[in-house]
C-alpha cells in the first residue's frame, strides 16, 4: 500500500468504525436498562426470586436433626460446632449445642449435602450484616433437646411430619451425593 492510500485508508477506517460504534451506543438509548434497583424498588423481595439451590445463610431444623455430626465432619473450615451426648439414663442422644459461625462459613454446601434428613439447609437469606462477629454466631439450641430418631415407617408425629417432608424434598432437589436420584428433567 502506498503511503497516500494508507493515509486515506486510516482516515476512512477511523471514521467508519466510529460511525458504527456510535450506532451501537445509540441503539442502547432505546433499550431498557438491565440493572435491578435493589432493595426498595422491586416488586418482590429479592430473596423470593432466588433459585431453590441458592446457598444463603444456613438454617437448622432441630426437630429433625439426628445429631449424627455428619455436617460438622463435612465442614472444611469447622464453622459448625455440635455437642451431642448420650444421656446415661434415657439412652437418648441429647443435643446441647448447635452453633454455626456464619462469619466463617463459606457457603460451600458440603454440610447440607451430608445431612441425612435435610435438617441443616441453606436458605435464600443473604443479608447478614451485623455489628460484631459474636452476633454472627447462630445458636440453634436454647435448651438441650433430644435428637430426632428416624422411624421405620413414615413419620406420624403431626408436628414433625411437615418439617421432615420439607427436609426430604430439599434433599431430593439437591441431588444427594451418590447420584442415585433420578435426573430432574427429561433429556432431549
Amino acid at each position: 500500500m502506498s503511503a497516500v492510500s494508507e493515509y486515506a485508508h486510516n482516515i476512512k477506517d477511523t471514521v467508519s468504525t466510529i460511525f458504527e460504534g456510535m450506532a451501537v451506543t445509540a441503539s442502547h438509548f432505546m433499550r431498557k436498562p438491565y440493572t435491578v434497583q435493589y432493595p426498595d424498588r422491586m416488586p418482590v423481595r429479592v430473596q423470593d426470586t432466588l433459585p431453590f439451590r441458592y446457598r444463603g445463610i444456613l438454617e437448622v431444623d432441630l426437630e429433625i436433626c439426628t445429631g449424627c455430626l455428619a455436617c460438622e465432619r463435612a465442614c472444611p473450615i469447622d464453622c459448625i460446632v455440635i455437642v451431642a451426648d448420650k444421656d446415661q439414663q434415657t439412652r437418648q442422644l441429647l443435643l446441647s449445642q448447635f452453633d454455626i459461625d456464619i462469619a466463617k462459613c463459606m457457603y460451600c454446601g458440603l454440610c447440607s449435602e451430608a445431612c441425612p434428613t435435610g435438617s441443616i439447609h441453606h436458605t435464600t437469606e443473604f443479608e447478614g450484616a451485623d455489628y460484631s462477629l459474636e452476633s454472627l454466631i447462630r445458636r440453634f439450641v436454647k435448651d438441650p433437646v433430644i435428637a430426632y430418631k428416624a422411624k421405620k415407617g413414615p413419620e406420624t408425629d403431626p408436628r414433625i411430619a411437615p418439617i421432615l417432608s420439607r427436609g426430604m424434598a430439599y434433599l431430593d432437589q439437591w441431588a444427594q451425593p451418590g447420584g442415585e436420584k433420578p435426573a430432574g428433567e427429561e433429556p432431549a
Binding site: 451501537v24 435491578v36 416488586p43 418482590v44
Partner: peptide, 17 residues
C-alpha cells in the same frame, strides 16, 4: 441503529426480578 436494535433480543431477561 435500527439494525442493531433488531438484532439484539434484550427481552431475554433471565432473572425474573
Amino acid at each position: 441503529v435500527i439494525y442493531y436494535l433488531r438484532r439484539s433480543q434484550m427481552e431475554v431477561y433471565l432473572n425474573p426480578t
